[in-house]
Amino acid sequence: MNETAMSDADYQKLGQTLAGLAGQGAMKLEMLDGFFAALVAGPEVIRAAECLPQILGRAWDDDAAFPGPKAFDEFMRLVNGHWHEVSATLLAGDDYYPWLDADDAGRVSGNDWAEGFEQGMALQPADWQLAFDDADAGAALAPIMTLAMEREADPALRTTVSDAQREELLGQLSPAVSRLHDFFRTLREKMAAELAAAEQEKTSF
């Protein structure tokens, strides 16, 4: 039995809790999903509990943000549960599907998800640069960054996405995360093998 499995009710409660803290800068559920995708797929896996200030915004320092310890513990159960689901999916090599919410008009933009992913990358900028510098990994990052930059404050950096382009970009997110996860996993395995070989060389003298 997978004790970390999240039910629909769990996700509804997690989304409602985050929405209730939105005024204090907490992430939306869609943004949290993108954030976790970057934490798990990236250079070094970062657990959810290490990133509560980023997740909760100003609510992290607000003792009144949660009614009591039990409410906070339940929130942590839900946050960790979702993180584990993202992690288990990528580690198993299964297809990862981003959590994308529709707005009041029924439109799915993907901006919140991409901005969450970008925030996850910002925790390890130097290591993520390795992906930008690699042809295949850089191509995987392209649709994510295009959506993330669509709401950029600086007009010179802001991207413009047509409806047709958006549909294509959204369809590229799932394979992009898998490709990035494979890129960094291969890189870690290569570095571990080189380190082991160097240690073996030292002991052979």
Rank of each mutant, 00 (worst) to 15 (best):
M1D: 14
T4R: 12
A5M: 08
S7W: 04
D8P: 07
G15H: 06
G20N: 02
G20M: 00
G20P: 09
L21T: 04
Q24T: 09
Q24E: 13
Q24H: 10
G25W: 12
M27T: 13
K28V: 08
G34E: 14
G34L: 13
A37L: 04
V40R: 05
A41T: 09
A41W: 04
G42P: 12
P43K: 03
I46C: 02
R47H: 15
A48D: 07
A48L: 07
A49R: 15
A49M: 03
E50L: 06
C51P: 09
L52A: 02
L52C: 06
P53S: 07
P53W: 08
P53K: 05
P53Q: 13
Q54E: 14
R58D: 10
A59K: 11
D61G: 05
D62P: 09
A64D: 06
P69H: 07
K70N: 06
F72Y: 09
F72N: 07
E74R: 10
F75Q: 07
V79F: 00
N80T: 05
G81V: 02
E85K: 00
V86F: 05
S87I: 00
A88W: 03
A88E: 15
T89F: 07
T89D: 10
L91R: 13
A92E: 12
D94H: 09
P98Y: 01
L100F: 14
A102T: 06
A102Q: 14
D104F: 08
A105D: 15
G106R: 03
S109M: 06
S109N: 11
D112S: 08
D112E: 15
W113R: 01
E115C: 02
Q119Y: 12
Q119E: 12
L123Y: 14
Q124E: 05
W128R: 00
A131N: 09
A131T: 05
A131L: 09
D133M: 08
D136Q: 01
A137P: 13
A137M: 00
G138P: 11
G138H: 03
A139K: 06
A142Y: 12
A142E: 13
I144S: 10
M145T: 10
T146L: 02
A148E: 11
A148P: 12
E150L: 03
R151M: 03
R151H: 13
A153K: 04
T159E: 14
T160G: 09
D163C: 01
A164M: 01
A164Y: 04
E167P: 08
E167W: 00
Q172T: 04
Q172S: 14
L173N: 11
S174P: 13
S174F: 09
P175H: 10
A176Q: 04
V177A: 12
F183T: 13
F183D: 09
F184H: 05
T186N: 11
R188L: 02
R188V: 00
M191R: 15
E194F: 00
L195D: 15
A198K: 14
A198C: 04
Q200R: 15
K202C: 07
T203D: 13
